[in-house]
Each structure stands twice: as C-alpha cells, then as structure tokens.
C-alpha cells in the first residue's frame, strides 16, 4: 500500500446549529483517485473544502505531511493550501488577469519562481490541455470548458501533491463536459492523487480507484467502483444509484428516439456533429 497523503479522523463541521459533517474518517493515499458521490446536502463539497481548510472544521483532525493542519497556524495553512490544488464548480478564474497571469500569479508570488520560468511552465501546461493559443486572452473570452481547463492548469502550475475537484463539470454546458473530464482522466493516468466530488457516474466508474458515498454528513458506503456500482445495495445508496440510473436511462431513451425520428430526414454533417457532441457529453455511451 502506497504512502498516506491525507489522514482524516473524525472530522466534524457545523454551520451554526446545522451539523453538516458528523465525524468522517478516511485516508487518501498517494496516486488514489477518490470520487465522492451522494445526494445534495450530503456533505460532499463541505468535506472537500475542509481538506484544504477553505472551511474551518469544527472538530477532528487532518494529518498532512505529518502535521495536523486543522490546528496549524496561518502561515502553515497557506503553505499547505499551496500544495493542494483546487478546482471549483464555477472556475473562479481571475477576470482582471490574462490566462497566462492567472496561471503564473501563484508560482511567482507564493513560490518565488522567476517570471520567465513561470511563463515557460504555464505555456507547457496550456499546450497539454490544448489552449496554447489562449495565453494572452482574458477569461471571459473563453468558453466554460476552456475556463475549467485553465483552472486545472492554474492549480497544476503549483505542482500540488493532491488535486481537489469540487463538481468541476456541474456548471458546464453538456457538450463541454467531455473535454474537462478528458483532462482529468489524463491527470489520473499520470498518477496524480485526486479527490473528486462529481455527479458524473461514468467518470466515477471508469477513473476512480475508490468511491465514497456521502449521505447525511457521514460516509455511508465506500468501496471500489465495481463494488459500488455493480453490487446490490439497500437503503440510501441503492435509492441514490437507482435515481442516477433512471437519469442515464432517460438520456439513452431520448437518444434512441431522436435517432429514430431523424433517420429518414436530411440532417447536415454539422447538425449531426452537434447532436453527437451534445449527447456524448458525460452520458454513458450506448
């Protein structure tokens, strides 16, 4: 078993009276891709945001690099955050900076990397995600999928030990989900340690090494993708997976109906490509 990166013990988080996390414990090991699924309000995002202390846990401990970062001083927390990448649902690119400046800001300010080195690295990373030509553009000139790929690159530029993804495709138009998931798959293939909150079950099944099902502020089930998705489950997990399946089944049904309707009609190449893109986005292939 590879080394433990994050050891989380009995983590709790309350917002006022509302107890969102009710004592979660788990370990994130190097090279793992842990995907968290579960119903809204189950605590997935809060749990993820506690890992890099964007939310201050109410209790429990998170051991990273041998220290409990929950109790750490501000300076240590800043250093810890610089070693964890985070990708947000709404991208959160800095609109007043060019793509290049978005990516090089933190390496320059936090790590003291020279401007030339930071730029070189940024351009290499942009090339990897197919956005080399956007270096001088501003965020609002990019599509949602492009923004999210830049956001991933911005985190990667800090050479993080672990990447946290908070519903990275939920705010995207369906046809753009695929391009972001592809980047994430490549990352996983390269051995990046990842913790991902997502509703993309296909991604969870294909890429995750472990799936956590969070419900009611607890880890209600945990296991390999095969055990979670193919096993028979009672209770909330079974119910949740049932609903998800109905969703994908519905999408597949729409797909086959659509092709039926369009079978005998004139459909241009372009229209066909658009439809394919739309239906391929995040949906299970048939």
């Amino acid at each position: 078993m590879s080394e433990t990166l994050l050891k989380i013990e009995n983590l709790t988080k309350s917002f006022g009276e509302l107890e969102v996390l009710k004592g979660l414990s788990t370990e994130i090991r190097k090279g793992e891709v842990v995907v968290m699924i579960g119903p809204s309000g189950g605590g997935k995002s809060t749990f993820l945001r506690c890992m890099n202390l964007l939310e201050r846990p109410t209790g429990g401990s998170i051991i990273f690099d041998g220290i409990d970062i929950v109790q750490a001083d501000e300076k240590t927390k800043n250093r810890v955050r610089s070693e964890m990448g985070m990708v947000f649902q709404h991208f959160n690119l800095f609109p007043h900076l060019t793509i290049l400046d978005n990516i090089t800001l933190a390496p320059k300010l936090v790590r003291g990397v020279s401007a030339a080195d930071a730029e070189k690295k940024a351009r290499e990373l942009l090339k990897l995600v197919g956005l080399a030509d956007k270096a001088k553009a501003y965020p609002q000139q990019l599509s949602g999928g492009q923004k999210q790929r830049v956001a991933i690159v911005r985190s990667l530029a800090m050479e993080p030990k672990v990447m946290l993804f908070d519903e990275p495709t939920s705010a995207l138009d369906p046809e753009m989900v695929g391009e972001v998931l592809d980047v994430m798959k490549d990352l996983a293939k390269d051995g990046m340690t990842m913790v991902v909150v997502t509703h993309e079950m296909r991604f969870a099944r294909d890429v995750a090494t472990r799936v956590l099902f969070l419900e009611g502020g607890r880890i209600a089930a945990e296991g390999t993708p095969a055990a979670i998705f193919d096993g028979r489950h009672d209770g909330r997990l079974g119910e949740f997976l049932g609903k998800v399946r109905v969703g994908t089944e519905f999408r597949d049904k729409v797909k086959s109906e659509l092709f039926d309707i369009l079978k005998d009609r004139e459909v241009s190449e372009e229209e066909l490509a658009r439809l394919k893109d739309l239906l391929a986005g995040g949906a299970p292939a048939t």
Binding site: F88, N92, L105
Partner: peptide, 14 residues
Amino acid sequence: DPGQMEAARALGLS
C-alpha cells in the same frame, strides 16, 4: 464573488 478570494487562498496566497 467570494469565489475569487477562495481561489486565491486555495493557491496558497495569504
């Protein structure tokens, strides 16, 4: 947007 501060903090900026 509070997300701007969060993104900056998540990158390790004080």
